[in-house]
Design a protein around this nucleic acid. Structure first.
Lengths: 196, 196
DNA sequence: CAGCTGACAGATTTCAATATCTGTCATTCG
DNA sequence: CGAATGACAGATATTGAAATCTGTCAGCTG
């Protein structure tokens, strides 16, 4: 009846690792804990992930990937100006991060620690996000709404300039009430700079 | 012959504290060390600074004040357009920070720790810097070069948007060769956004 | 025989005893 | 008499011994 109750897959291990990280936090979560949660020996976990670091990286990549998907869907919506898309993309990114940080601060802090460990995975993630921005800006250039010699460079500039509203190091400031005005001010300034 | 060899002043204590911090780092530097460096008992230091935190704050404020002076002089130079002043102000700020970070990384890290402790002093410092920016932007608005409803809000937006190039948390990235291009890209985008 | 186990060595973390530091204040010194 | 001292209590940091964890691998199990 139970479809395949006890096959140990990377997917199941990642799920269990997320749970353990959520429960014990990034410093106390151990591979032994993950194995215990799955009812196997820790040696079995090492069969699927060469090191603890690799396991944590995989969890991080999955987490970052979810944000990439969320934002990727946005730019596929038709019948919107590039300016609207850009504004919305930035707003959704900010809102998603702020929500995660405010909803469950401990879990967010946990991922903050994971992110610091996995600089390679993060670099990859940032490239994807900047690529999405570049696509939106490139579209705007093609339709004559934006002026930008190099859409990719412009995308990077926009991403850098909004760091305060997506970089986790600033999460504590996302609670301040003025932050929304500040976000809007930066966005409008950047959009003015992009317009043809 | 020696002018006034042994009068214990706040100034002398701050000097000695900077030395001790430079030598031992932020975690190991103690009030006892400062007193020893001055040849007095630690009780005497407490006569001039109520707590260790207050002493560290004073050191931090002095350090931040030096940057404020450096940048304040800039905007007083005559015969320059607001755009030139703004560009130069941002460039000097970035260059000063990068220089400090690259020159003596340990000392820079030390001040990084001090800054995290003294959030009040830092807020004050940021207000001063943003005020300087607002003065430059306000001048540009008056002379018709810039368009900005609220120069102070615009100044804050410019400051926020360039966080990557002055916030110490990004210091490790200031070594990367691409950083100069990225800095220029953000500056030009912001200037385009400000122009009338 | 493919996948899992559990004992093991070396690295890392924990914990409690010890040492040092912070901040106060009665006393000394010039 | 004003400034400096140093002993002191409570808070914080250091240390090293014991416990735990990571990563490996020879052998077990279904």
């Amino acid at each position: 009846m139970s479809p395949s109750p006890e096959i140990l897959t990377p997917e199941r291990i990642l799920e269990a690792t997320e749970d353990v990280l959520r429960r014990y936090g990034p410093t106390k979560a151990t591979v032994v804990d993950v194995a215990r949660a799955l009812g196997v020996s820790h040696g079995s976990v090492y069969r699927h992930f060469r090191t603890k670091a690799a396991l944590r990286e995989a969890v991080t990549a999955r987490w970052l990937g979810r944000t990439e998907e969320l934002l990727g869907e946005l730019s596929e919506e038709p019948a919107k100006t590039a300016e609207e898309k850009l504004r919305q993309w930035l707003a959704v990114l900010f809102e998603a991060k702020r929500h995660k940080a405010g909803d469950d601060p401990e879990l967010f802090a946990t991922y903050g620690v994971l992110i610091q460990e996995a600089s390679g995975v993060v670099d990859e993630h940032l490239l994807v996000l900047i690529g999405q921005l570049a696509a939106i800006i490139g579209e705007g250039v093609r339709s004559g709404q934006f002026a930008a010699r190099d859409p990719l460079a412009a995308a990077r500039a926009v991403f850098d300039a909004t760091a305060r509203f997506h970089d986790p190091v600033y999460a504590p400031q996302w609670e301040r009430p003025e932050i929304d005005d500040e976000f809007r001010a930066v966005c409008e300034l950047l959009l003015r700079g992009l317009r043809a």
